[in-house]
Design a protein around this nucleic acid. Structure first.
Lengths: 241, 241
DNA sequence: CGCATTGCGTCAATCCTGTTGACATAAGGC
DNA sequence: GCCTTATGTCAACAGGATTGACGCAATGCG
């Protein structure tokens, strides 16, 4: 078939069950499916069933599964960033972006797992990149540095948020068992062969918590230090990819 | 069928092709398959073909695909950290750990994407935590801070590496399309509504690359700054999880 | 109002997965 | 050499993505 997906629909033909399909409706239904029954519940067949249409009808709206996934990812970004406006303090604004993105991911933990590392190349993502890059430009970084540092920033935020979301998406039983088992094993280690872990034993309980905010804080500290030290425009050695 | 997987084999029956199956051989073949033909080449059927046995024979060794993936992941961790020994410079040593973990993940992207957010609580992981925490203690951090900062460090490394691995695990077609997006979609934006992106247009091509090393560098910069400023032992406000 | 066009929902088929129950056969203990 | 049983093989099932052919009905036009 491989019909190209048109941008605007002119004819709206109801499905067998009377529902009018739309890109938005499909994405929302997909998110609902994932939220209710887990990411493995997202299949073209199930989505078709949930929408009351034939699975193949979805190919009129999306080129394939991947296209649908990108649309879902962009939707999450859009919801997370809705209503955000920079307030003038670029560090605070970046932190706000980070917190919003993480909240958006945690709202759809099971979808976040496969959405975090994709380039959606859609409206909401583009807007977010525009915002983030402009914040770093306002901090005094030159274009090349601002671009790379935005990438580093957003990758840290996205990957960290995805990790939190993935852990959150585990079955509660398994999640709690993991947490408990972690503490138990690490509390009963031999002191001679694990001196460091024995030293910090009292503090190990915090290992089960998220490190998201601390990671963002450390990153922003480093960015602020670079901006303040006036190296913002010069390229730095030792970071070849 | 759901036969339980025995720990030690007593009877070794050769497959049709004459090969003697074993857990190790299966894991090694799986890793070879992924390495040679990409992550999507790993399926029970293909693995059976590569081993010259019926796909269902694998269920005598692993409860299912997940069990197999975890066995693979365990080997990856062991291989990545094999032979590592701290050299005396805690910043350089942490960076070395980060690079090793990432290399281990990227060598086997599909398995890595699955295993990154799971707590193995096994020997290799315990050894890594012991090493990392002891490095931060040697930097002058007090136990509570050393523990939290190690968690922040390793979470950043793991999530970033997992993100890179997940991207690497994409079908080549989608991977390249995502990369091309930075060249195509993001190059043709309206200048009026996207001033920042227009300003940095020349640098956008780097967005397709990994930001792993820069993220690690920034994190280590912040850690070194905190250690040097003597705040290593005092608790810091504003980072409540 | 009614006809022609065609967008798009439906159906059926193809080729992939993972997984399992039944069966057969060879390994090892006796 | 027999008997038990581990284990490899076979066939089948359920469910996945995708697509070509088909036909209904919504829309534009007269």
């Amino acid at each position: 078939m491989t019909t190209r997906v048109p941008q605007e629909r002119r004819r709206r033909r109801p499905t067998r069950s009377g529902l009018l399909l739309s890109e938005d409706l499909i994405v929302e239904t997909a998110l609902r499916l994932i939220g209710e029954h887990g990411p493995e519940a997202l299949s073209v067949r199930r989505l078709g069933t949930a929408l009351g249409c034939d699975p193949s009808a979805l190919y009129r709206y999306f080129r394939g599964t991947d296209d649908l996934v990108l649309a879902i990812a962009d939707r999450i970004i859009g919801d997370a960033m809705a209503g955000f406006a920079p307030g003038g303090d670029w560090v605070a604004d970046l932190r706000e972006m980070a917190v919003r993105v993480r909240a958006g991911y945690l709202a759809h933990p099971r979808a976040a797992a496969f959405a975090s590392y994709r380039v959606t190349r859609r409206q909401n993502e583009i807007r977010a990149v525009e915002t983030g890059v402009s914040l770093l430009l306002s901090a005094g970084f030159e274009p090349v540095q601002a671009t790379r540092l935005y990438l580093t920033f957003i990758d840290t935020v996205l990957s960290h948020a995805a990790m939190d979301a993935a852990f959150q998406a585990l079955p509660p039983q398994q999640r709690e068992a993991d947490r408990r088992a972690w503490h138990q094993v690490y509390q009963q280690l031999d002191a001679a062969s694990h001196p460091a872990l024995t030293t910090v034993r009292q503090a190990l309980h915090t290992m089960g918590d998220s490190s998201f905010e601390e990671a963002v804080d450390l990153l922003l500290e480093a960015l602020a230090a670079r901006a303040a030290s006036g190296t913002a425009g010069r390229s730095r050695p030792g970071s070849a990819g």
